[in-house]
Design a protein around this nucleic acid. Structure first.
Lengths: 315, 315
DNA sequence: CTGAAAGCGCTAACAT
DNA sequence: ATGTTAGCGCTTTCAG
């Protein structure tokens, strides 16, 4: 098989100039090319299996039709895939390709990777964090089209896309309250930091704010109760575990796909805003929240047990 | 901020030609450039923050330093992230960037996405399936540098990278046998197809082959036993659930990272082979396999219960 | 209605 | 030891 045909091969074979081929194939509006010529060009192009060289095209057009996606931890969370998928599909819908890069939270590596992206003339970059947190935008990215995904940056004007944790917290509280619960609500996690929850991550805090916003009071837990007969449970993140448990766990899911999609959407928008976009976190109703049964046992005063993150990650 | 400096800006400022700048910055070996000139060029380049335009470079060099990664389902399995990470890090180590594309198992979309990749002159493509299976290599990919990841293609000469399921099956069997088990071994899953296991996926079958290879016989299950005191359990895939369970589940993990890494490694190798590379599947010893205790109860004849895939995915 | 030619930014032969 | 020049493959004025 000979090497790929160039535009000049098509031109030669169709007996026209490369300029004409270019116009026809790109459907340039203002061009009045004879229908016969046009048809012949299309035909020859198809016959030869001609495909324009994107590199040459990009160089000429000063646009690579490519988007950089830089992420701190592609693999550590099982959700990352959804986010990348959202970004990729949106990019594809806009005839862009996604260039993926992973920094592992190493600032030096991060700069290198971002430069590699910029060198290739990406049209913009999505700066993604896998856990919701505050970041400082790398110097090399300043003044360029950037969308923050799942994070905030202090002085940056780049738009940010993050899950609407606060409203999710409200929803969680409401679900319990609607089921009749008033007392004996035991809130686990949400504050503080630990090995598993590095500094700057604020999802838990925001959820807690939302929960407290709706809850009038919190009670103390009781042991030895059945779910959802005696006690209801609602959690965050909708990990696979949630639907494996018996009874199945009612949770509020992270909108990973939508976050990725929206980030790219914003990147490609005509006018870039610098807003913070809070994406709704969907409630997955399952079996762990039941209606309140008889004797409410106000065993004690309001108490909140915090800073305990059970493996499996609730709030 | 003015637009990015070109090589000619550096040349002008350093009082030399663009050719000299190019040679110095690319460290061309055969070039005898005066040390003073060299230093001045480096200095000016740094001062201006000059970065070569990758598009122009690629066009000239006929190589984009870019690899296409086409995957059927980026997001559906929590493991995909690991595979992508492996591929990305290996690409980065070779100064290549990964262009990610998702086809959702739609052949038309697949062709479109692959063409988008080829148009951008990717140096090669990794064709990845998220479940181990047989595929037919898309026509457009034939005759190009391709590595199959987690799949086989019939008539293709492309190398394939897949988990070594058969040996993993052997390992699983050995672990149990080493613990003293001979009877009462209950093998679940592994054969047939279902909604969750589309046609062509052969991981389960291969695992079973490996298990049967080592096991002399299989027994029947008993109910109401404790793990690992009365009964040992070993499973495949090492999903998060495995370490959440109590006792923690001993499993054989999928080598996702290594698979992704190796695929890119092969793609970038000098001489491309057309071998099938079986990557070892690591054993994660946890708590669910215990030593055999007293009375072995040969409750019945050998029997294998198949075609049952418990949610949570064992073999 | 179509062709010639310039140029996107870079590298590598070939001159000097 | 450095400069000149010819492209890489494409799009787009500007002439005709």
């Amino acid at each position: 098989m000979a090497s790929a045909p160039r535009i000049r091969d098509v031109a030669r074979r169709a007996g026209v100039s490369t300029a004409t081929v270019s116009m026809v194939l790109n459907g340039v509006s203002g061009s009045r090319v004879a229908t016969a010529t046009r048809d012949r060009i299309q035909e020859v192009a198809a016959e030869l299996g001609y495909r324009p060289n994107g590199l040459a095209r990009s160089l000429r057009l000063q646009s690579s039709a490519t988007i950089g996606f830089v992420s701190d931890e592609i693999a550590t969370t099982p959700f990352a895939g959804q986010t990348i998928l959202g970004a990729q599909e949106c990019a594809a819908a806009h005839h862009k390709l996604l260039m993926l890069v992973n920094t592992g939270r190493d600032p030096e590596l991060e700069e290198l990777e971002i430069l590699a992206l910029l060198d290739r003339q990406v049209d913009g970059v999505v700066y993604a964090s896998m856990y919701t947190r505050e970041v400082t935008l790398p110097e090399v990215l300043k003044g360029r089209p950037v969308v923050l995904l799942n994070c905030f940056a202090d002085g940056s004007t780049a738009p940010a896309v993050i899950p609407d944790e606060i409203n999710a917290g409200r929803t969680a509280a409401q679900v319990l309250i609607e089921a009749g619960h008033r007392n004996d609500i035991y809130v686990i996690g949400g504050l503080g930091q630990s090995d598993e929850q590095p500094a700057g991550i604020f999802a838990g805090r925001e959820r807690m704010n939302g929960i407290e916003d709706v809850m009038g009071q919190v009670g103390v837990p009781e042991a030895g109760l059945r779910i959802p007969d005696d006690i209801s449970v609602i959690a965050f993140d909708d990990q696979d575990l949630a639907s494996w448990l018996r009874p199945k766990l009612t949770t509020i899911a992270l909108p990973h796909y939508e976050i990725g999609r929206l980030a790219v959407e914003l990147l490609l928008a005509e006018r870039m805003d610098s807003d913070v976009h809070r994406v709704a976190m969907p409630l997955r109703r399952r079996e762990s929240v039941g209606p309140l049964t008889a004797q409410p046992s106000g065993t004690g005063p309001a108490a909140r047990k915090s800073d305990r993150r059970p493996k499996g990650g609730a709030a």
